[in-house]
Amino acid sequence: MTIVLATPGSDGLDAAVVALREWQSDAAPRQLHPGDVGWFWQLGAQATAAAVRTWSRDGRILAVGLLDGPGLLRITTAPETRRDRELARSVIADVIEPGRGVLPEGAVDVEAPPDALILDQLLEAGWVAGEPWTPLHRDLTEPVPPPAGRIEVVDADRVADRVEVQRAAFGGSSFTTQRWQAMAAGSLYRDARCLIAYADSGAAAAIVTVWSAGPGKPGLLEPLGVHPDHRRRGHGTAITVAAAAALRELGASSAFVCTPSGNLGAVPTYVSAGFQPHAEVRDAHRPG
């Protein structure tokens, strides 16, 4: 059967998320997670649905992509179709041929699992490896020790603190109270939780949002940040431990996160919180 590309819209978004949940596995490499879609939901349900793409054969979804910005397609596939040549050819044609509308001309990136044929074929077509990222993973079979310091769950009274740290930790962030409210109103936030670490002074020092993919599935930390005024004081480790504990409470089998390898402070922080680094991964990049 022919591979069919679709923008599922609001009505079909649930099917794409169900597929993403099913494909999550502790044995699989880092891939697009339902939490990535949940975090995108800060832009609203309509924008989220418009950013999702699915590739199907005979009515079954084989690949799900998220247009995470104008020049980045994040995509994963059903585990058994990672090396499916027909699927890879179809996805690549939809991505790089003019007029298909998935990615614009010029400099763009495609993120896919490192064992996906899609990445191999893009590199063979003249794309180059993008910046390195380090995936990290923590098993949640055993209970997580309590984190140090004061950790609170974000509610309506703490949204301002959540937003303040997000904007301070990530330069150029456009996160707002309204965006948090849109994200929290989304269906995927039912399996998520936002946490804040507070300094002894009472100031909000670090934040994280964690996303479960369901019981027995790996959960995602996205995003995690520490306010510049409170770095190198243990708040990053504390909020990371708290994130792992929250995911275990949500039924996750493990916790994972992926950070730019060039962020020299991030990897040691995650390691100090019990996460194990794995081999670096890279997107496929087409220079402008």
Rank of each mutant, 00 (worst) to 15 (best):
A204N: 11
R158N: 10
L119T: 11
G106C: 06
V91I: 15
S212H: 02
R89E: 15
R162Q: 13
I207G: 01
F175S: 09
M183N: 06
E124H: 12
R179Q: 15
C194I: 00
L103H: 06
R193G: 00
Q121C: 05
A168C: 09
S174L: 08
A125W: 07
A199Y: 12
Y198R: 10
L220V: 00
A125Y: 03
Y198C: 09
V108L: 02
Q178K: 14
G216V: 08
A88R: 01
W127N: 05
E152G: 00
L220D: 08
A205K: 07
G171N: 13
Q166M: 14
I96L: 14
Q178A: 15
A125L: 15
V163M: 14
S174Q: 13
P215Q: 12
D139N: 13
R167W: 10
D94T: 03
R150L: 14
A169R: 09
P135C: 04
Q166P: 00
A148M: 08
G149P: 08
R190P: 00
I96T: 15
L220Y: 08
R100L: 03
L140N: 05
A199F: 09
P132W: 03
V154P: 09
A88H: 06
G149S: 05
R150A: 12
D120I: 04
R100M: 11
K217S: 12
V144M: 05
A203M: 03
V165Y: 11
P146L: 10
